[in-house]
């Protein structure tokens, strides 16, 4: 059990990628269905609805980002393996959680706002600015979570535990 540190840290990285990625996949899929419906009626709206479809996709990228940061900090990639204490591993695990959990839920909720906005674009194509804004509001919280995850991961590295 002396390697529990690295196991925990890797678990955190996997969690961030898994949950945030799964949320984004469901979200982008859901928005894509709505977008395809709109394009059936009017192919000229493709560019606009595509932007809206992609909005719930960013959480997955944040998950990837955190996952990658975590892997490179613990030396799984980059090659410089460092001995990781159990406490430190657990800390990495906790640092990944905000992005994982908030990423998952905000991607789902953002996709609902995106679907509604796609409906808005179908009826009023010139209101793209406002239509983007509603899903973007949801994303704020994913960004906050990402921020805390990033700051934590960078902070943990220099902690003397």
């Amino acid at each position: 059990m002396e390697n529990i540190g690295i196991v925990l840290a890797l678990l955190g990285a996997a969690f961030a990628v898994l949950l945030a990625g799964a949320g984004s996949a469901v979200g982008v899929g859901r928005a894509g269905e709505a977008a395809a419906g709109v394009v059936t009626e009017d192919p000229s709206k493709f560019g606009k609805v595509l932007i809206l479809q992609l909005l719930p996709g960013t959480q997955g990228i944040y998950g990837l980002l955190i996952g990658f940061l975590c892997l490179s900090q613990i030396g799984v990639i980059g090659g410089s393996f460092v001995e990781l204490s159990a406490v430190k591993g657990a800390l990495y695990f906790l640092a990944c959680l905000p992005t994982a959990i908030v990423g998952y839920w905000s991607a789902l909720k953002q996709s609902r706002a995106a679907v509604a906005s796609i409906g808005l674009i179908a009826k009023r194509p010139n209101q793209l600015g406002k239509a983007i804004l509603f899903p973007a509001m949801v994303e704020t919280y994913a960004i906050f979570a990402l921020l805390i995850s990033i700051l934590s991961i960078f902070g943990i590295t220099s902690l003397p535990v």
Binding site: L55, G57, T58, K130, L133, A136, T140
Partner: peptide
């Protein structure tokens, strides 16, 4: 990806 993100969130900060 980041062009889209930058565009969306710049707009948001303005709006």
């Amino acid at each position: 990806i980041n062009l889209l993100g930058a565009y969306v969130h710049t707009n948001r900060l303005q709006f």
